[in-house]
Simulated scan of single mutants.
Amino acid sequence: MNIAFIGLGSMGTPMARNLILAGFPLAGYDLNSNAVAAFAANGGKPAVTAQAAAAGADAVILMVVNAAQAEQALFDGGVLDALAPAGTVVLMATCPPGAVKTMAARVEKTGRSFLDAPVSGGVAGAEAATLSIMVGAPKAAFERMAPVLRALGDKLFHVGTEAGQGATVKVVNQLLCGVHIAVAAEGFALANKVGIDPKVILEILSGSAAASWMLKDRGPRMLQDDPAVTSTVDIFVKDLGLVLEAGREAKAALPLAAAAYQMFLATSGRGDGAIDDSQVIRSYDLLNRGQP
């Protein structure tokens, strides 16, 4: 199976490398020339445009930033027209379910298949090929692409037969992730307010019923003034925005997601959008102490 990979960012580059290591012929494209060079160094075939990467491919994987970029590549950038007539589009970016459904309908109208297949696991999961992949697609299309997807993640789920269902599972995941980070920051802020050592709080909570994966991962970084960036504040501004959009589409009330979104948005609005997402705690510090 000849595959085109569009979007060689911090996750796309290791994902593409894992496909190459698994033996799949891979052409790739990204707007960033350095990313394309890294892709070529990993054994991929670089292309000068997204359309050139997709020329005659059996499948194209889109690991772009958002739905707008996916639509631009597919419909304006010539990717869909360049794909083989019986080819498959695999959308792995985090996008609103409604936008995914619309995209899928346009792709399927041409006789090609569409997999709604967002991922979770971050850069570490992309590097180690341990991503969780949540697929909404007809069973036959899912089974055809399963060997490719298993080269990218060790947790592959067929969540439904319709495009948009994978995207919905992903936004639910991001809802919980964002709220868990925000509520952990809120808990630390309360402890700080009354003078309790946050290190003691972290140790207690990490071993109690209040523990969560996010607390154990982000909690230690919340206690640092300038932690290394593993996921930015702006990623959760984007993703919680998608959560709220999905809620509007489904007419589902999401008050906790809305509150968490406002805290990440406030942090970004002060110019801290590119710092580690654990630093949403700075917004709580400002609310409670009136200073950074």
Rank of each mutant, 00 (worst) to 15 (best):
F5W: 07
I6K: 00
I6H: 01
L8S: 03
L8I: 07
S10P: 08
G12E: 09
P14K: 04
A16V: 06
A16S: 06
A16F: 04
I20A: 13
I20G: 10
A22P: 02
G23R: 00
G23D: 02
L26C: 10
L26V: 13
A27C: 08
S33N: 07
N34L: 11
A38I: 01
A38E: 05
A38N: 08
A40R: 13
A40K: 10
K45E: 14
P46L: 08
A52F: 03
A57P: 07
A59F: 07
N66I: 05
Q69L: 07
A70L: 02
E71M: 01
D76G: 11
P85I: 08
P85W: 10
V90G: 01
A93D: 03
T94R: 04
P97T: 09
G98K: 07
A104M: 09
R106Q: 14
R112G: 08
L115Q: 04
P118C: 04
V119N: 02
V119Y: 03
V123D: 09
A128Y: 04
A137T: 09
P138M: 11
R144Q: 15
R144S: 15
A151Y: 06
G153S: 11
G160R: 05
E162D: 06
G166W: 00
V169R: 11
V172R: 05
V172H: 09
L176T: 13
G178R: 04
H180C: 05
H180F: 11
A182L: 05
V183N: 12
F188A: 14
N192Q: 15
I196V: 09
I196Q: 00
V200S: 02
V200E: 08
L205Q: 05
G207C: 12
S208Y: 11
A211R: 15
S212R: 10
L215H: 07
L215I: 09
K216N: 15
D217M: 11
R218W: 08
M222C: 10
Q224V: 07
P227R: 00
A228R: 15
V229M: 14
V229H: 09
S231R: 08
D234C: 04
F236T: 03
V237P: 01
K238D: 09
L242S: 06
L242W: 12
A246V: 11
R248I: 00
A250H: 05
A252D: 07
A253K: 11
L256D: 00
A258Q: 01
A258R: 03
M263H: 07
L265D: 00
G271Y: 06
A274T: 15
D277P: 01
D277N: 10
Q279S: 03
V280L: 07
I281L: 15
L287D: 10
R289I: 13
R289K: 12
Q291R: 15
